[in-house]
Amino acid sequence: MSSPLTVADFDYALPPELIAQHPSPERGGSRLLHLDAQGRLHDRVFADLAGLLRPNDLLVFNDTRVIKARLTGHKASGGKVEVLIERIVEPDRALAHVRASKSPGPGTVLRLADCFDATVLGRAGALFDLRFPGDVLDLLQAHGATPLPPYITHAAGSEDDERYQTVYARAPGAVAAPTAGLHFDEAMLGRLEEAGIARAFVTLHVGAGTFKPVQVEKVSDHVMHAEWYTVPQATADAVARARAAGGRVIAVGTTSARALESAAAQASPLRATQGDTQLFITPGYRFQVLDGLITNFHLPQSTLLMMISALAGMEPIRRAYAHAVAERYRFFSYGDAMLIESPLPPASAAPASSTPPSPASPHSAASGPAAA
């Protein structure tokens, strides 16, 4: 009997200089590491993507919009506070992480952005229930800052307001970007459409818990954070059409993957679904919807690294990450991307070996398992 998975099974060494602090000059200017269905690695550029997909494939995007969720201020006592909105629960109420020298109790008034007061109503687990003097979204848009991840060391500026947001963002509510989508610009979306590759959307409001480290030794002991998701009927129908046409369903980002798989756990065949999800995908999980994934590179020991290891296999992901480090790929939110094909594609799909290399790319040299 195999030993239980531990967090250490998902560790890797990452030189700090490979953590991207700023986006590439152009949205589609990143590199793309392709892990194909045979476990082979190919160094490409993101512009190659349309040539690596097939007509009738379906890309599923997360259309959540990042809100300016970070606020600074002080208590009446003068003590500094930092507020990070986690979820808006009513137009004038939100659950938030609050950092202060002393935890604020119910009734405490927080002066935020030197402009307005928010009142602490109580606690909801680790979060604080805050009442605002008006519409939370309006106040955040006027006075908040884009909530960059903790591994990005500069304060959010105008570049981040634009680039830490997908071009198709629609539904406000995320406090972290679905970063695989940051590589797509309108030109790429147009090329994909011309190539006969369909697209559909889900919404999953990414929470700050996505950056929370796993603080247990055994993976099975970890309690996954909850996030709100919606899979509309139009997306369920698009999945069915792709399946009927022999196409693959490829999620753009782990958040889209989590939404689709959460909906599949609720209804088969897939249909419109919404609610909170705490789905924790680890090796051994049987994917119900996904045949592939476009994603960025993830933190060591993270739940997202566990998810992609479930899709591709632990050994192929270890090889891919070792290769990415050796080849100096850029990591995390503003970094480069991966295209991961499931090693078990549906029988109705064309063989993975029929996917042609991108002849225009100077980066298309393939590396097999032994070379990676």
Rank of each mutant, 00 (worst) to 15 (best):
T166A: 06
D161P: 00
V252D: 03
D221S: 12
Q233P: 00
Q233H: 11
I250S: 05
H154D: 10
H225Y: 14
A200T: 11
H143Y: 14
K212Y: 01
P147T: 06
E159F: 01
Y168R: 04
A245K: 10
A174D: 09
A208L: 14
G207Q: 06
V231M: 07
D237E: 15
Y151Q: 05
E217T: 15
A238D: 03
T230I: 12
A155Q: 13
E217I: 07
D221V: 01
I197W: 04
A251P: 02
Q165K: 10
A176C: 09
F211L: 09
A226D: 14
A187C: 03
D185C: 02
G253I: 10
D185R: 04
Y164C: 08
A177F: 02
S256G: 04
A234I: 04
I250V: 15
A242V: 05
L189S: 09
P172D: 12
P232E: 11
A245I: 00
S158K: 13
A155L: 11
L182Y: 08
I152P: 00
V249N: 01
H143M: 02
L182Q: 07
Q215P: 00
A176G: 06
S158N: 10
M224V: 02
Q233L: 14
G209P: 01
Q165E: 13
L189F: 10
T235C: 13
L182I: 10
A244L: 07
V249W: 01
V239F: 03
T166Y: 08
S256I: 08
Y168S: 05
G196V: 09
K212F: 02
L148T: 10
R170D: 14
K218R: 15
A226K: 13
